[in-house]
Amino acid sequence: MYAIERRYRRELLVSMGAYVIVMLTVWPLVRTTDSTGLRTLICAAPLLPFGLALRAMLRHVRDSDEFQRRLHLEALAISALIVSFVSMSAGFLVAAKVIALDGTVLLWVFPALAGLFGGLRCLIARRYDRG
């Protein structure tokens, strides 16, 4: 396997593993903590491993070869457009009071973007891999 891909998978596995541990051990404390300062610290806890995951993604894109960057860009552009369109649509519906959403919906922006990117990246790569 391409060395950059190996490094990316290792870094992502470690950071997302740490994220899951924090979400299972630290995040539940937010329900029983009254202090705003402590709740802010609890909110910051998952952001540390999440930041490491973002760093892994950035290193992956930065160190990829020119063709892989092209695939990343195509997948990222399409996924960003889809997520933006859905966010705008939801925003208008909330503003018009057609649907009600609270702020926690923002937690879904990154998973939606990452999931779409991953799926589209595979589809686009398959298109080039044929032949």
Binding site: D65, E66, F67, Y128, D129, G131
Partner: peptide, 21 residues
């Protein structure tokens, strides 16, 4: 220093490499 996928795309003519590559 490129991926197998990149070599394949060049060989099949689906991707034209940059001048340095």
């Amino acid at each position: 220093g490129v991926s197998r996928q990149t070599v394949n795309a060049i060989e099949t003519g689906k991707y034209d490499p940059s001048l340095p590559l």
